[in-house]
Design a protein around this nucleic acid. Sequence first.
DNA 1: TCAGAAAAGAGAGCGCCGCTCTTGCTTTGG
DNA 2: CCAAAGCAAGAGCGGCGCTCTCTTTTCTGA
Lengths: 254, 254
Amino acid sequence: MSTARGARARARIEVTAAIKDEARRRLAAEGAAKLSLRAVARELGMVSSALYRYFPSRDDLLTALIIDAYDSLGETAESAHAEVADAGPRERWIAVCVAARRWALEHPHEYALIYGSPVPGYTAPETTIPAASRVGLLLIGIVRDAHQGQGVARPPLPTDLKVEAQRMTAELAPDLPPEVVAALVAAWAQLYGLIGFELFGQFNRVVEDRETFFRHAADQLAHGVGLIFPRPTRPNAAHGANGRGTDSGRANGA
Amino acid sequence: MSTARGARARARIEVTAAIKDEARRRLAAEGAAKLSLRAVARELGMVSSALYRYFPSRDDLLTALIIDAYDSLGETAESAHAEVADAGPRERWIAVCVAARRWALEHPHEYALIYGSPVPGYTAPETTIPAASRVGLLLIGIVRDAHQGQGVARPPLPTDLKVEAQRMTAELAPDLPPEVVAALVAAWAQLYGLIGFELFGQFNRVVEDRETFFRHAADQLAHGVGLIFPRPTRPNAAHGANGRGTDSGRANGA
DNA sequence: TCAGAAAAGAGAGCGCCGCTCTTGCTTTGG
DNA sequence: CCAAAGCAAGAGCGGCGCTCTCTTTTCTGA
């Protein structure tokens, strides 16, 4: 498997990894548009044509980087989630959102690669799907847990969305109510709108304290998916004792 | 001014326009990454070096296209808004959102240019700011009208966001309450998250009936900014105050 | 009016790019 | 042990952004 039979096979794995590492370094430093096979090869002391033995084209190398980026983001989100696994849905939801934002700010070019405009004429191959789903699955899981604890509520859907919402539900989370799934998918997209706007400069003369703004917006997203936030067990937590001052009006539903 | 003094000046205007037109054509056909000055020049029957008399670099040409794209989007949104100018805030809000989405679907590469990842190492010059603000101003205007009719309400802000929200309010819409402005900015970003996810394929095996889904999501965004949708012409709508099945918890506030 | 300034086009060229093809060398497996 | 397969290297093709030089055309002001 991984320790394949010959020295040749091992070398191939090592060289492939070295290429990806160097490419990732250059991607982080200069962005996808300036990522050139020739520069990677140069840095690795090999001739550019040799590199084609490992990645048949620049797009294939980019695809590998895309998958890695999805995985890196997914791992970051998952470990952030694990750290608050025992907390309530609200904390967990926000932890995942905040982790995604932080990852994006730390890896802007990788983020742009996966959630910005797709490169040239390029359409992502199906290989990327599992890696791309990790954050989404995390969010679904949080809502699912909340739902099993009766902590999710959403108003009924308009009739024209019912069919589609049921379809999405069957596909994504058959155990959740369609109203919740529809709201979840929207929140998922909106989360990346918030991150993207900050990252790509649309907030430039608009939002200054972006961390605070984002936490609040993520909190509102949680409301949007119908997560209910009961006053945190302590009846007398009016001032400051509250997780982080990010409360807002009550969300209640049917 | 526009008809400047000589034939030379007139020619310059015409050639500049021809270059932009051809560039826009190629941008729409192949995307920003494949837009090359040489190809544009070739198509126009001029030699590539001559083109540099009009645009000192590829990035400058792209900047011109960016401004045009913002203007095109802004115009589309504004005319869509004008068509429902007499309707309620909800219809107007949705009309603007739907128009933005439609424009994006019709001009994917232009959309990617302005709201996707910024090209190469490129940061948008300040020239683009006015053009970029048009849709945002439209949304602010809708909410402002609703507010003057007492049709906007939001729960109070968490304390840690108050300062920033007041700053944003002073900058963007001093006549609106800070809670509304904060929600508006978030909704603005979220709108483009929804559009971008559809456009860039993130909805691919997730959402099928995207038009319906989007309308619903845009409706929810309107709720998010605190737009209240009174039951049409019914005066006493204290309790079940929802237009269709699309209400979410009560929004109430100052 | 007419010479000099300014603007514009044309061409050659530099260094980069993705990618291909051919040529030899090394490892591998029957 | 030897043929097949894997691999590095080099040369080369066409395309790119951009610069520089040279010539022609147009504009301007004394």
